[in-house]
């Protein structure tokens, strides 16, 4: 198969020694023709050792910088190495590489700048999610809809297809989680974003990045970041116009 776009598949990983090997294996068997990059975000378990055994291209953060910075490293790598687009997926094995192929096909055949793999499109919208998270997801989905004129149903999805047109804007801002704040920023700058329906498997190993405290901290933090994103986007737009 000849790919029209050079695409990088990238996985940010933090303490995922139990699942990363399986994820890499599945990506290699389903999407073997694409370059693969893993960002080891300062893992303190055996993730680095597993990655070495897997002989996969790895960008190793010497200390933990967080999810947003790991994604930023991926975008910087993709920009520096001339990729047309990149796909990010989680290291916990929740995303299915078979669906990623469909996502890539849809990405290649569209002019959308970023496609988000959405768990909440169609019939399965917001089902089987803990009440607290569901409220948060609905809230941020509505906020994005109100602020940008288009609703994004899954603002916290880790599966994204990102075109090179948005590499620079994504590097210029320091997003903490790369969630609603990044979506609002890009949409306010006039970039096109869309969603692609996906299903996810249950996390089999490792720990989620959402702790109990995060249920309170996350909405406040993301809310403030959204306000700042709007300000940044407006300033940038005016700067460009000048």
């Amino acid at each position: 198969m000849v790919n029209s776009l050079s695409i990088l598949i990238a996985i940010p990983a933090y303490n995922e020694e139990k699942s990363i090997s399986d994820v890499i294996g599945r990506v290699r068997s389903s999407l073997g023709e694409y370059d693969l990059l893993v960002v080891n975000d300062g893992s303190v378990d055996n993730t680095a050792k597993v990655l070495k055994q897997e002989n996969v291209t790895t960008a190793t953060h010497l200390c933990n910088l967080g999810y947003g910075r790991a994604i930023q490293t991926i975008v910087k790598f993709a920009l520096k190495n001339g990729y047309d687009g990149l796909i990010t997926l989680d290291a916990d094995g929740q995303h299915q590489p078979e669906q990623i192929r469909e996502l890539i096909r849809s990405f290649e055949n569209s002019d959308v700048d970023m496609i988000i793999g959405s768990r909440h499109l169609g019939k399965n919208a917001y089902k089987n999610i803990p009440f607290g998270r569901k409220i948060g997801m609905l809230l941020f989905s509505r906020i994005v809809g109100l602020l940008c004129g288009k609703r994004i149903y899954d603002t916290s999805s880790g599966l994204k297809a990102i075109r090179k047109t948005v590499f620079k804007p994504l590097i210029e801002c320091n997003f903490v989680d790369f969630h609603a704040e990044a979506i609002v920023y890009l949409m306010r700058l006039g970039y096109k974003l869309d969603e692609f329906p996906i299903t996810v498997a249950e996390r089999t190993a490792g720990e989620s990045m959402y702790s109990f405290l995060n249920h309170f901290k996350y909405p406040l933090k993301t809310g403030l970041l959204i306000v700042l994103s709007i300000m940044d986007a407006e300033i940038k737009k005016r700067g460009v116009q000048k």
């Binding site: 960002v39 960008a59 190793t60 520096k80 190495n81």
Partner: peptide, 10 residues
């Protein structure tokens, strides 16, 4: 840290 990681990956 990002720069070191990227250079190493390259």
């Amino acid at each position: 840290v990002q720069e070191i990681a990227i250079r190493d990956a390259e």
